[in-house]
Design a protein around this nucleic acid. Structure first.
Lengths: 229, 229
DNA sequence: TAATCTATTAACAATTAGGTAACGCATTCG
DNA sequence: CGAATGCGTTACCTAATTGTTAATAGATTA
């Protein structure tokens, strides 16, 4: 995907900001769409399918937070990156926007240069922009792991794994032989704060054993799990 | 190595984050160095030789990914742990940056408590911090002890040990020849608070003798045990 | 909207690790 | 020479840990 194919939706109630930011970004070659409140933002997002949305938190009609929540519910816009513009004074850890589904935020006052480079950094995540390469497959033993499509190929046979199962397998596969403690697994696969019941890991391991092969997975009692090839 | 000798490099373009995170970590006794973009990060990393780098992925000038790749190429910084701050909770396998050589990631929004405990966990990997050793393998005689995989290899033969047995053996193996008193063993393997009966150690020693070989274990009557090769 | 899939939990079974008691043997020491 | 002490050994018990299955709520897809 090239720069000129990337669409950015700017949302702010102040015309000045739309102009300045819009100008700078379009200079860089991005396509710019604007909206001046939350409702309009949702409408335009649906219609235009932007890759990135930069939105002020405080706006009349519908604020950024609410709009963000709504946009996150739209299936086609799952991969859209949403960034808030927030007042500097807010305590970072208090920024509620993350709960609403935002990916990042940019603090005001906005410096054009900073903004532009930040936008570029954000867009690096998008597949194929400026040929950003990332190894999408990992091979262990006779198994090839394709993390873009959440599937693995074992002896030429394709096995599609659900998200969590895949994540778990992928984690173990990054260091074959290494024993991952339950704690470690929870932390990396389930995330920092999520608390799930004690048997959850076992069940997922079992499913992997069924699908991939029992023999690969070793249980080290009192410690955790590992895979071996 | 003590806490106050540990240097952490924080990299983020937002001053707020540097302050909050920096404050929390310095409260814990760590030395903090900061940088606000990738280029600066590389420069400071070279100069300061931090043990841990916590870096935002998205930054102007040079983003975290690129900086990480560059830092990884610096010989003196091979052992430095690099952790990314990533937007929201991306799936583990999707967290770009592992390709770039990152060791771990922390998801935004950052909660100080979570951060601090995560940092502590990461630093346990470093040799000598709070007596936790980082060496993953230890070789004594014809036996290789692999802490990461919870197994020992004797003459090419793999022996998997239960947790307590492994820890007991590992303890003795850290100083071959040294006599460990029962008190010492209980303290290190079983922990300060647990009270177990008098014969417990014997039984475990016996199990090790069975699995690994009687001849390695010497009993010093009235004192304790040691291993010899 | 109905029809799948997924992730998680709950409940129970199976397994194993850790610990203990009991007994026997050796060494030490009076 | 016994008695006392410390250690080795076995068998057994219990608690902790994991395996397994099924049920359910939530997502996702057709």
């Amino acid at each position: 995907m090239k720069k000129k194919d990337i669409k950015i939706l700017l949302v702010d109630d102040e015309q000045d900001i739309l102009e300045i930011v819009g100008y700078n970004l379009s200079q860089e070659g991005y396509q710019i769409v604007t909206a001046s409140n939350g409702k309009e933002a949702i409408a335009k997002a649906k219609k235009e399918h932007p890759q990135l949305i930069i939105m002020d938190v405080m706006m009349p009609e519908m604020d950024g937070m609410e709009a963000c929540e709504n946009i996150r519910k739209i299936p086609e816009l799952q991969d859209t990156i949403i960034t808030f513009l927030t007042a500097r004074s807010e305590d970072y850890s208090q920024v509620a926007g993350f709960d609403a589904g935002a990916d990042d935020y940019i603090a005001k006052p906005i410096k054009p240069k900073v903004l532009v480079s930040k936008v570029q950094a954000l867009l690096r995540r998008l597949k194929g922009v400026e040929g950003v390469s990332s190894t999408t497959t990992l091979t262990v033993g006779n198994i090839e792991i394709n993390r873009e499509e959440y599937k693995i190929i074992k002896d030429g046979e394709e096995i599609i794994l659900p998200r969590k199962e895949f994540e778990l397998f992928y984690l173990l596969a990054t260091k074959p032989g290494k024993v991952f403690t339950r704690e470690e697994i929870l932390d990396k696969v389930w995330g920092n704060e999520v608390v799930v019941g004690g048997r959850t890991i076992d069940v997922h391991i079992r499913k992997l054993r069924e699908k991939i092969g029992d023999s690969f997975f070793k249980t080290i009692k009192g410690v955790g799990y590992k895979i071996e090839f």
